[in-house]
Amino acid sequence: MKHIADAFKHDKALIAYICAGDPVPDATTQIVHALIRAGADLIELGLPFSDPIADGPTIQAASQRSLRAGMNPDLFFDLVKTLPQTVPYAVMTYYNLIFHRGIMTFAKDCRNHGIGGIIVPDLPPEEADELQEACKKYNLDLIHFIAPTTTPERIERIIQSSSGFIYLVARLGVTGAREALEDRTKSLIQRVHTDIPKAVGFGISNPQQAKEIINAGADGVIVGSAIVDIIARNTDDINKAIKEIETLTRKLKEGITE
């Protein structure tokens, strides 16, 4: 199993998000292969939740498609086990699914199925003690967020409880592709001083933005909605989606590689 840190070892990292099981469980394996071929360094797999409060319309719709196609945590872990272990994987899901499965069980399942990190958008560090402990036991990274609203004092505390990478939220609000970068994104990158890799997500959709993020001092970029948008446009022609995803991913990777 690859560790989250492996993604940042050599170069700047491209982190690609897809919702597992979108539009159908079978497609996920093919899409992951395409992402890896195109140079993704880490794959963030969404385990869909019925009420994703941190997600914008694109990922909400992906979650709905996936749930309708029958995705659930059992299937998710079965699916993950079949994926190529040439890159590290992180699971992105909401806390109730982890809590309901049992926090230790969920962490153990991650460990046993090749997942190296857990990202939970509705779990601030204040509530994360139990999951942090489970992650420690199973040698997983619990990825924390830092937002534009996070105070300097909180930034310090979040850095102290972080490992793997720190997820910097590029802007206020929810996930979803945006055309322009905000100035505060760059200032946020500069406000966070740590040796732990900093990856920036929320709203990054094109190679130019990815390049600006890296130039501002980030160690990685996270692209989700822009990839999921391609799936949404091509639910009836998954091969076309895969081609487009591969093209976008290659360009993004070029954008962050000098």
Binding site: P121, P124, E127, A147, T150
Partner: peptide
């Protein structure tokens, strides 16, 4: 109870 919300809302 508790505060299970995205980081962006914690300061608020």
């Amino acid at each position: 109870g508790g505060q299970f919300v995205p980081e962006v809302l914690m300061p608020a």
